[in-house]
Each structure stands twice: as structure tokens, then as C-alpha cells.
Design a binder for these strands. Structure first.
Lengths: 195, 195
DNA sequence: GTCTATAGCCCGATAGAC
DNA sequence: GTCTATCGGGCTATAGAC
């Protein structure tokens, strides 16, 4: 048994996690490759062999982060029927991740520094946020959400959620988000519900 | 009369405007000083004489941007009495600036890339956003805003506004924000109003 | 496939003429 | 006070041993 990372796939994962940690802490441009080498235990050569360049690495991190997020959202959606509930589990998921694996959310919010085209795409064009837009549109059709532009309604709901996350990540909000979730989700839903 | 910028203060202002334009377009780290020189018509030497280094320049841009924003907000506050109106003119101001001088808002939202301490302070700790928090707190006391944590209420209101701005700046929202203001401000207010 | 060593480039900041 | 020319440093990416 070798001392670490028998599996090349394990190495890639180590690089991704280490690089993400550093990118969210200091910013894409402020992290030199040698620092990722130190933090991950993987050599420069191996990193360039697998990712080609620094931008591709950032894009790979982004893809993996979004894939994980979508998978968790799909799990939590099982059994949820009403629009209100589908949006609520979205907010709860975002809040839980912000507390337990903040790098994921921080990366999603800060990756736009990187010039790679995959990183430049707006957050709302990603799969999980597209789902939210679809749920809101369906909610309008069903009369659960008040009439109006479904994109604006999605913007309002996610705006409340994401702004709360940002302030929590900056430690302006001192309590963990799951404790504040009740009030925040109530506010978010109030901004778009019908009646 | 010299060909340009008789006044040293005018030069500083040219540098600030040019650098802000470039920083929001490409990011702090992706803009080399020589590019600011080309864009502003002011030499490297003059820039370093007045600002000392690149980070201080970013901080000076931030201060000027926030000062301008606060001044405009104070003007619009004149004559507004209700909490609802004070928050509404905040949202309208943000929307107007996002359309007419987008660099101001973009800079406020993206300056945290720069490592200067003045740039790292959270947006909600700045004067205009502190004012919003105070108005919300007063609104709760007056019964206009529903009972609860005033910080969470301010987060919710500004969350709707800022998320809309972000999506408009990315051109996801295709109509100018002032045209969408009615619906958005209604959503934002619905998220926190009493009753 | 994986490493180390280094090439080559570009940036921020300064020195010194005017 | 303002300019141009340049230095030193640190970065990305590669070349070549193992």
C-alpha cells in the first residue's frame, strides 16, 4: 500500500477540494499553482496533465460543485408536491450547505472571477436554478404563486435566500442559517405567494 | 489652455473613472497598471504618486462610489416619511443607477476581489445599507413592518433588489429595471410588510 | 504517469531625467 | 509634479529525468 492516493481519481479529487478551498479563501488570481501543490500533495506536473491549465481546473471545480448540489436537491425534492414545498427544500438545502460545506456555496458565488467561459455563465442559468424557475412558473399556473413574470418571482425568492447566505458567510448574521430558516423562508414565500 | 487636465484633481478623477471601468469589466487582478494609463491618459508615475499602489486605488474608487451613492440616496429621501417610501426610493435609486451608471453598482458588488481592508468590508456595513437597516427597525417599531429580526427583514428586502440588479447586469433580465420596478418593489415589500 | 527544475513572460513598483 | 525606462519578483506552463 502506498502512502497516499493509490487511485489517480483520488488525486484529482484532492486537487479539486484543495483548490476550491484556496480559491474561495483568496480568490482565483491570488492562488499560485505551487500553493495548490502544497495544499493537495499533488505535483505541478500531475495537475497540468489532468487539467491542462489553471482555468480548466476552476471550471472542473465548478462543474463538480454544481453536480453535487443538483444531486442533493433532487434527493430532497422526492415526495414534495406543492410549489411552496419545492422552493422551501431549495432554501433549506442552500442554508444547510452554507453551514456544513460553505466552500461549495462560496465557490458558486465567487467563481465568476475566472475567465473560463463555463465559469462566466450566470448562476441562474445552471440546472438547479432553472428548476426553481420552472417550479415558480408551475406555481403561477396553479394559482399558488401570484400572477406576474415568473422570472421576477424566482429572482425575488432566490434573492432573499442568497442574500441571507452571503451575509452569513461574512459572519454578519451570527446565528446558523438553519435557525433563521423559518423566518427567512417565510419572507421569501411572502414575496411571491398569491392572495 | 493645455490640451487636457489642467487640474490635478481632474486627473485623479480620470484615473478613478477609467480604473473603475476596467476593474468591473475584467476584474482587479486582470487589469495591469499600463492599461489604466492608456485608458485614463495619466502616466504611471502620477498614479503611484497619488495612490501609492494599486490596492489604494481600488479603495479610493470604492470610497468615491459609495460617497456618490449615499449623496444621491439622501437627496431622494427628502420628503419621504413612511418606511415603505424610504425603502422604495432606495430600490428605485439602485435600479436607476444600474441602468444609467452600471459601473457604480457593479463595482460595489465586485470590489471584494481586492485585498485592501476597506474593500473587504461587507456591503451591508456601508452607510447607505446601514440606513436601510435603521429604517426597517423603525418600521417594525411603528408596526409598518412585521415583527421579527430587523436585520433579517433588511436582508430580505435588499435581497430582492440586489438579485434583480445582478440578473439585469448580466442581461438575464431583458427589460430595463425601472420598467420592472413596480413588480419588484411590490415583491420586496410583501416579504416584510405587516398584516 | 509522475516528478523536479526551469524557461519565459508579465506585472507592480521605483529611480532619476526633466 | 510628471514623465519614461527599467528592475526585481513571482507567476504559468513546459521539458525532460525517472
Amino acid at each position: 500500500m502506498k502512502k497516499r492516493s493509490i487511485d489517480p481519481e483520488k488525486k484529482i479529487d484532492q486537487v479539486i477540494r484543495a483548490a476550491r478551498r484556496l480559491f474561495v479563501k483568496k480568490g482565483f488570481y491570488a492562488v499560485p499553482i505551487p500553493e495548490i501543490v502544497k495544499e493537495s500533495g499533488v505535483s505541478v506536473g500531475a495537475i497540468y496533465l489532468h487539467f491542462g491549465n489553471k482555468e480548466n481546473l476552476a471550471a472542473a471545480i465548478y462543474k463538480k460543485t454544481l453536480d453535487d448540489f443538483l444531486e442533493q436537491y433532487n434527493q430532497r425534492l422526492l415526495g414534495q408536491e406543492s410549489t411552496r414545498q419545492k422552493l422551501q427544500v431549495f432554501a433549506e438545502l442552500v442554508f444547510d450547505i452554507a453551514e456544513n460545506e460553505p466552500d461549495m456555496i462560496k465557490y458558486m458565488l465567487s467563481v465568476r472571477q475566472c475567465p473560463h467561459p463555463d465559469c462566466a455563465a450566470p448562476l441562474c442559468s445552471t440546472k438547479p436554478f432553472q428548476l426553481v424557475q420552472e417550479f415558480v412558473a408551475a406555481g403561477i399556473a396553479a394559482g399558488e404563486v401570484k400572477a406576474g413574470d415568473h422570472l421576477l418571482a424566482a429572482v425575488s425568492y432566490t434573492g432573499v435566500v442568497l442574500r441571507a447566505v452571503e451575509l452569513r458567510l461574512q459572519r454578519v448574521l451570527e446565528q446558523p442559517l438553519p435557525e433563521l430558516a423559518g423566518e427567512l423562508i417565510d419572507n421569501a414565500w411572502s414575496s411571491i405567494k398569491s392572495g
